[in-house]
Nucleic acid binder design. Structure first.
Length: 230
DNA sequence: ATCCCGAGGG
DNA sequence: CCCTCTGGAT
């Protein structure tokens, strides 16, 4: 059984290695202000950031502020965001979000977790993305990648995002939380895939209790890095 | 068939 | 706690 001290050391070593491997790790959603990031993050639910970035330019141009979302025609908005999936629930959330921002926050996106999670369509994960990337407030993004890698790294065995957030957060200083999220998510997207993780090409294989879950042959692994899934 | 930077409702 | 909402890539 790994001691707490050893777990903390191993977790931080993994993060250091990931940081060195992915020096450009950051939020991959395109945005120019907090509202744009908030909208893009809501659209990213069960979608890829690449797909979100494809639709957001038209969305941001048509709805430049909170009041514009509040006054949006449902059908128009649904058509603009359609490729991201869940278009009915998302358009509904964005319209109600605009109204809530105008009514309760003077049309501005609040910079506190407590306020953000009261907004329609905004859960803890979305709130932490906005805090970390638009307000420089440390936050752990427990998205699908972070959940999967936390389990594989042995950082948390919980299936509940808020528990994982607390347990993994306790392994790192607050100031590391946002960049940790980016490092882990980048590694999840590029190497530690949900299906057939490229263990043979993984920079933290030595530190990972799940090493061997995917192919360990370096040649096979390197192929997986280019053709991520199959 | 499985997965993608989830949230809300029952 | 479960379920549902949705499209597109692989």
């Amino acid at each position: 059984m790994e001691t707490r001290t050893a777990l903390v050391r191993r977790a931080r070593a993994i993060n250091r290695t990931l940081a060195a491997t992915y020096p450009d790790a950051r939020c991959e959603l395109d945005f120019c202000n907090p509202l744009e990031l908030l909208v893009a993050t809501i659209l990213s639910a069960q979608s890829t950031d690449k797909r979100v970035n494809l639709v957001t330019p038209a969305v941001f141009a048509r709805y430049p502020n909170a009041a514009a979302y509040a006054a949006a025609e449902r059908e128009t908005l649904e058509q603009l965001i359609h490729p991201t999936g869940f278009f009915r629930a998302k358009s509904d959330a964005l319209i109600k979000l605009g109204a809530a921002l105008v009514e309760r926050f003077g049309g501005e996106v609040p910079g506190r977790l407590k306020d953000l999670v009261t907004l329609p369509g905004v859960g803890r994960k979305t709130a932490n993305v906005v805090l970390g990337n638009a307000f420089d407030v440390p936050g752990i993004t427990t998205d699908t990648h972070f959940m999967r890698l936390s389990a594989r790294f042995g950082w948390s065995d919980s299936a509940k995002p808020d528990v994982v957030e607390a347990e993994v957060g306790s392994l790192f200083p607050r100031s590391d939380w946002t960049q940790l999220s980016h490092n882990v998510i980048w590694h999840g997207r590029r190497c530690c895939h949900a299906r057939r993780p490229a263990c043979g090409a993984c920079p933290v294989a030595r530190l990972c209790p799940s090493y061997g879950e995917g192919p360990t042959d370096p040649k096979v692994a390197v192929k997986l890095l280019r053709e991520p899934r199959g």
